[in-house]
Amino acid sequence: MAASNSEVWQRGRIVESRALTPRIRRIVIEPSLPVKVVPGAHVDVRIRVAGEDDRRSYSIVDATADGRRIALSVLDSPRSRGGAAVMHGLREGDEIELTQPLVDFPLRIGARRYVLLAGGIGITAVSAMAVTLAAVRSDYTLVYVGRSRSEMAYVGELQALHGDRLVLHVGDEGTPLDVRALVGAIEDDTELYLCGPIRLMDAVRRAWVDAGLDAPNLRFETFGNSGWFDPQEFVVRVPALGLEATVGPNTSMLEALEAAGADMMYDCRKGECGLCEVLVLDLDGAIDHRDVFYSEREKNATGKMCCCVSRVVTQGATPVVTIQTT
């Protein structure tokens, strides 16, 4: 699929906002410059959080064929950095600024078999893929994992669309996902598309490597917003710049450093490219690596971190990290 990733900003008018679950709202937007939407696409939305301009990425769950209406679905969780509250506040007739669809997670047509694996709100990134694979009569399974059915959006619609190809794993119904069993049953020329919390992603990546499967066939998308631990406030010190900043639970270390006046290098801001890497000189706490740039080995070494997404945590007092920037 030719993925065009030119960032074109446009206006969008909200034409629908409704609760799918107590914490997930479906938001339908009519963009001013509609284009056809391909599976795996997301939009970036301009929002204001705490008086500052910011942006958030949301997968396009579904869209009309001409792209004149696109639907997002947004989870509001205690770990949200403020975007979800803004998005949940939108009502019919409100206007927002958003990009045309961007594709960092393209679905390749033509694999012999597919497994689409969604954890929780990650269903938003893969449900359009499942629709496309059904339309081209591919061999696919959609595996959808959640803690409880009341927190899983779109279950009824997915069952109607995909029948036996949909496999649900619901924690409080006693059918949790066995990642090892799932990955163990995957054959060589199967492509797996994954979007979910970092614990699920890490478990699948580990099982994939252990099963000796081809690394390129594991495809995933992360917007860098989930970790192994709940975010907590921590302090970052940069002795070379004579600078210290407090990183609140709803901001990133990169944002805090920029706000404190550091001239930071970065590109993706979602833990993929490694450009925002900082050297860890001293650490009072533990690093919660939330990126997908470092390997397991590198993460265990704790000498570096991607400051756009990764954080520092402790059990007790305020964690402190002392770093050197590029």
Partner: peptide
């Protein structure tokens, strides 16, 4: 680098 950027594909 030891990993592959998840968005790294060409059509």
């Amino acid at each position: 680098q030891e990993t592959i950027n998840p968005s790294a594909t060409v059509p």
